[in-house]
Structure formats: C-alpha cells, structure tokens
Design a protein around this nucleic acid. Structure first.
Length: 697
DNA sequence: TTTAGGG
DNA sequence: CCCTAAA
C-alpha cells in the first residue's frame, strides 16, 4: 500500500519532457541532395583548378615540384599502354588524358552479358553481374559516352590538383612507394582513385583465353557520387590516433554538420548490406564478388555514418586498396615474361624497386603483391605425401611501359608499380611451369605432373598471367593504421583472387581446383574445404582482431597462400562489427537522466540530448543500452557482468522504465524535465524503486 | 530516418 | 551490437 502510493506519486512526478519533438521533416534532411551537389560542385571546382594548374605548368617542367602528383601527371601524359595477349594485341592508347581517363574511369560501364554459359544461374541474376573482361573495346566507348561527365568529376575529385592523367592512380603510387605518408591529403588522393579502377579493368582487355565470363554492370552513379562526396569529406578529415574516437568524432562534427557524404553512403551501405544478406548470395555465389566490390562503397558509407575516427581510416584503407589495384595506363601483355625484368620498359625494374613495392604493399596491407613478387622458388618435398613449395618469385606478364625521357626515375618506378599493381589487381591467374613448360592440365595431380618429384621441384615455377576473372577491388580491412601490414592481406587475397570454379577456366581444362595464388609453400592442391575454412577463419580473425586493435597475428604464410573460392567468405566482411564500447557509468548516468526526462520512445531525442557528441552512440545504441540496463536492473548483482553499474542508477532505470512503460512514452511535450532521485534502497529489493521527484518545474 | 523488437 | 519491419 504504502509503496504503491509512493510509486504512483513518483511516477506522476516524472515529467514529460517539455522539449517538443521536432518534426522529423525538418530534423535532418536534404542532406542527401546537398551532398550530391556538393560532390559535384567540388568536382567541378577541382576540375577548374586543375585546368588552371595545367596551364600554369604548361611550360615549366613539372620537375620542380617533386610531389608525386606532379610526377604522376607528367607520366600520365606520355604513358602509352599497350596490351597484348599472345597474338591478339589489344591495345589502348590514351591520347587525351581526359578522354582516356574517362574511359578508364567509368564505373558505369555496362556490359551486356554475353556468355556466361557456364553458370546458368547467373543469368538469372543479371541484375548483379560480376565484373569480367570486356571483350571488346566498344564497351569502353559506350561507357565513356555515358559517363564522361562522371569521369571528369572523378578526376577532379580524385586527383584534385593533379591535372588529368591517364591513370588517375599513379600519383598515389609514388606516395605509396615512398611508403609513409599517412596524411589526409595523400590518402585522399589514393582513395579517390578508387572509382577508376573498375573501369580500367574493363578497359584493359585481356583477350582472355578463357571462357566463362560474367558481365558486370557496375552502378556507377552511386559510386561516383559516393566517391566524390567521400573524397570531399576526406578533405576535412585528419587522421588522429585510434583511440581518440571521441575527439575524432567531435572533430568531424564540423564536417558532419554538413553531412556531406552521409546520405549517399548510407544509402549505399544499406543497399549493399541488403544485397549481401539477400538470397542473391546463395543464389549466385558469383555475385558476391561483385557485391564485395560494391561493398566497399557501402562499407565506406557505413563507416561514415558511424563517424568514428578509425572508421575513416578504414575508408582510407579501402580506397587505398582500390587505388592499388587501380590501373590505368598500363597494359600488360600476355602473360609471362619474366617479371624480374620488364624488358620492354625503358628501364629495368630493379630489385630495389621491387622491394620498395613490397614495402609499400606491406605498409598498406597489400601483402599479396609483395608476396607475389617476391619469395623464393625453392621447394622441397615433405616427408608426407604433401608437396611443399616455397615460391620465391612469380613471373608476371610482360609489361609494356612508355614514359618520356624526361620522366624521373621515381616516376618510372611508380609507373612500373602501377603496371604491376594493375596486373595484380586485375584478373590474374597463376600458371604453373614445370621445366619451362606450362602445365595446362589442371586436373592432373602433382604426382602425375611430376611436381611431387624432388627433381622436378627445382624446375617448378609459377607465373602470374592475365586471368579471366575480373577481380573486384578488395575491401580493405578495417583499422589500417593499427593493423599490421599483412592483416588485410588475407582478405585481399581472397577477394582479388577469388575465382569461381566455373570461371576459372582460363586454363584449357579447368578443374575444380581454383588457381591458387600463393606466396607460400602451401601445397598446391589444397582441397576446397580446407581452403574455405581457412579463409573464413582468416577473414574473421582479421576482422575481429584488427578491430580489437590487436595486431593480426601474422597469418601464417600457408594461410595466406590459399585462395579460396568459397562463397561464404564474405559474410563477415560485409558487416564489420563496430568495436564494442561498453557504456561507462557516466554514460549510463547520462542515458538514465535523459530517459527520465524524455521517456523511452524518443531515442533520437535522447541521443541529441545526452550523446550528441558521442558519435559512436547512435540512438539505436542508446535504445539497446536502455534495454540492457532494464534487464540488468532486474537481475541479481551476481549475474551482472562488466563494469558494475551503481545500484542507484539501476534503481533509476527501473523507476523510469516503470514509469514510462506505464505512460505512453508518446504523450510528450507538456511536462518539464524533472529530476528523479532514487532514495529508497529498500524498495529496489522488492523489485521496484521508488522515485521521488525532487524537482518539478 | 526513427522506432521498436528480435537476434 | 546487428538487422529489420514498420511507421
């Protein structure tokens, strides 16, 4: 009786917030549009500035400024790329940077699916196509027409002050190679390049000897927009220390206010997520690749939304990665001329260069490249029936690079790097050479082929050659900064190298065995199951550990070596869980306070009121936290985990919960916020707290 | 975009 | 925390 009375009193005392809920309509909207416009405007501005810069630089050599950007520019102008595949020369020559870029950049390219006979089911899912080789140049032109505009934008955005280049990515390379810079500007550049990648791949044509292909349709609009906005956003971002989420958040707030990129990204993200989780997955494994690539954007969006410091980093990494694989003006010729020396290029690629590349790759988490390029070739047979191989180096396709005589060595290196990157980032397959002969029969066992023989192992070689599958740009793993260089490698490897069996028909008799790109001594014929599981493990590990800021244990080489063709690999990648951030007591206090005032149905307002500066706490988070608090308050202290929440707060939680669950949270708007104070420590044992209003206005 | 809930 | 159906 008494209690009840008091309770009632208390409840009544809860005041409904006097803060009227703002009409959602005016809360936050028009961001999306604004964003888009922003991006465009920005792009144009950049373009304009670029043009101006170009003019200025017209006469003076770009030498004075050693910035990669400049170098890049110069190279871009003169680089001629030529691609040849065996007897079929395919070649692309960029005459006009802009135009060329356009062709390359287009992300919208749509190719009609021509022959995907191998995988009928795909046809059903035409909506999402996987990027594949473009058989004919025509596609390019089409795209160009359609997307020239976009391309330009991208160029602007991406390159900022860099005058149009054939390959938008080059600039980055320089930086990458130098390896160190982490500053926002560089990152920005790198990231920006990402969009061009797909197109490039498309434009780069490897007369794929192979069969099944999928045509891809890449939605580019969103990409471009996304990209643009993103890059723009990036301008405002500075990298901070990982732990400074809060600071970071605040910092970002400024830019966030404008929500430049959020809309697009959010949408994208959502869309992607949906795709990812949708049945398409299962229906069309292939799609995954595609989706993954798309996911990049989505993830970005996602992260952006989260606005956490390192989320941004992730973005950066993502873009970087893309950049990495972005190619542009470089063409590779058939596949396999010693990589050690790029014979046709003006200069040889030196070991130094390789090392540099490796460093770069490592620093950016693109270990795969390094792996591919380095390593020994030594191999030996193990005691058991497994053949263990240690690959020291891969031969890579011939690269034909043309650079002006005035180009600097550094620019040359970058160019080469790009070429290599493009190659690696593109569709490549691994070829096996035994005693100089290419082993084409994938169905043969190592034993049958003689690879198991010690004698032959010495004569065993691997090559990288243009493969039939277009590789979606790898999504970079999160927390690049903290992550160990190789942390993301697994993902990349899997992503970039994933080849579905069906597609993996580059070799005459394709077999279930997917081509493996390995940098390790892993036995060549690993079985699928193993592969997939490994991959999954790796992926997960990567995700979780990196998130936790725990250095990803160097994946053992073996693990990395495996290139799974599995489909379930990605799930984890898509939804990168946010790092767990337990609510502190003070946060709980703030939450309780806000809920007491606002009720339990206005989480957005709660967020605004008590966590506006905590970008990592979304209203959904707050709602969830409240849910758990209520639960926590109901269970015994012994059952509670984590940082103990003061009983006083739990009492308030219970009181507020009881009050608001009894009152429609909805009837807000009239009351004043009051301060509730739980004074009764006896009551809580009984299961409810007594709330005594101390202040009622 | 928010809210409300289930997982 | 994530994911989503609803609103």
């Amino acid at each position: 009786m008494v209690f009840k009375k008091r309770l009632d009193y208390g409840f009544n005392a809860f005041s409904v917030s006097n803060v009227p809920r703002a009409p959602r309509s005016i809360r936050k909207r028009d961001r999306t549009k604004r964003v888009v416009e922003d991006g465009r405007i920005c792009a144009f501005e950049l373009l304009a500035s670029l043009a101006g810069k170009l003019l200025e630089e017209g006469e003076s050599s770009a030498s004075s400024n050693a910035s990669a950007g400049h170098d890049h520019v110069s190279i871009g102008k003169d680089v001629k790329l030529e691609t040849r595949y065996d007897d079929k020369p395919l070649k692309t020559e960029c005459v006009g940077h802009v135009s060329c870029d356009a062709s390359v950049v287009t992300s919208d390219w749509t190719t009609e699916n021509s022959d995907n006979s191998k995988e009928p089911k795909h046809s059903e899912n035409n909506a999402i196509l996987e990027p594949t080789l473009t058989k004919a140049p025509p596609a390019c032109s089409v795209q160009i027409n359609d997307d020239l505009k976009y391309t330009i934008q991208k160029c602007n955005v991406g390159y900022g002050s860099f005058p149009g280049n054939l390959d938008g990515c080059s600039p980055n390379f320089g930086e990458l190679c130098d390896g160190i810079s982490e500053n926002g500007v560089k990152r920005e550049v790198e990231t920006n390049n990402y969009p061009t990648m797909d197109p490039l791949e498309v434009s780069m044509t490897f007369p794929a000897p192979i069969n099944s292909e999928r045509d891809v349709k890449l939605p580019s609009r969103s990409d471009s927009v996304l990209n643009a906005s993103f890059s723009r956003h990036r301008n405002d971002i500075k990298l901070g220390s990982r732990d400074d989420d809060e600071k970071f958040s605040r910092f970002n707030k400024l830019s966030n206010r404008f929500k430049v990129s959020r809309p697009a990204t959010c949408i994208e993200d959502r869309r992607i997520r949906k795709l990812l989780t949708s049945k398409y997955w299962k229906a069309a494994p292939k799609l995954k690749d595609f989706e993954d690539s798309r996911a990049d954007g989505g993830i970005k969006a996602l992260q952006r939304k989260r606005k956490t410091y390192y989320d941004k980093c992730q973005y950066d990494t993502l873009y970087k990665r893309r950049k990495f694989f972005d190619r542009s003006s470089i063409v590779t010729s058939d596949g396999r001329i010693g990589s050690e020396n790029v014979s046709n290029s003006p200069e040889k690629v030196t070991n130094e260069n390789e090392n540099k590349c490796r460093l770069v790759a490592m620093s950016h988490g693109a270990c795969e490249i390094a792996s591919l390029l380095t390593g020994h070739q030594a191999s030996h047979k193990s005691d058991d029936s497994h053949v263990k191989l240690s690959i020291k180096s891969f031969r890579i396709p011939e690269l034909y690079i043309e650079v002006p005589e005035t180009a600097t060595v550094g620019s040359l290196k970058r160019t080469v790097m790009e070429a290599v990157t493009a190659l690696l980032g593109g569709r490549i397959r691994v070829g096996v050479l035994l005693q100089g002969k290419k082993v084409r029969d994938d169905s043969r066992t190592l034993l049958q082929t003689g690879i198991s023989s010690e004698d032959n192992l010495d004569a065993l070689g691997f090559t990288l050659e243009p493969g039939p599958v277009i590789v979606p740009p790898p999504i970079c793993s999160e927390e690049p900064l903290l992550q160990l260089p190789c942390g993301s490698a697994p993902q990349n490897l899997t992503r970039s190298l994933v080849v579905t069996p069906a597609l993996d028909t580059g070799v005459p008799d394709a077999t279930p065995d997917p081509p493996l790109l390995t940098n390790s001594a892993k036995s060549v014929d690993s079985n699928y199951e193993h592969v997939s599981s490994q991959t999954d493990m790796l992926t997960d590990q990567n995700l979780s550990e990196s998130r936790a800021l725990v250095p990803v244990p160097a994946m053992n080489v073996e693990a990395l070596a495996v290139v799974p063709v599995n489909q379930k690999i990605r799930k984890s990648e898509l939804a990168q869980r946010r790092t767990r951030r337990p609510f502190s007591v003070s946060e709980v206090e703030a939450l309780v306070q806000a809920v007491e005032e606002l009720g339990t149905g206005r989480w957005r307002d709660v967020k605004l009121r008590a966590f506006e500066n905590a970008d990592h706490r979304t209203y959904v988070d707050l709602k969830d936290k409240w849910k758990t608090l209520v639960h926590t308050a109901k269970i015994s202290a012994q059952q509670r985990r984590g940082e103990p929440v003061p009983q006083e707060l739990l009492d308030r939680v219970m009181a507020a919960h009881a009050y608001w669950s009894q009152h429609q949270t909805k009837q807000q708007g009239k009351h004043h916020p009051g301060t509730l104070r739980i004074t009764d420590s006896q009551a809580d044992r009984i299961g409810f707290a007594v709330a005594i209003p101390t202040i009622t206005m």
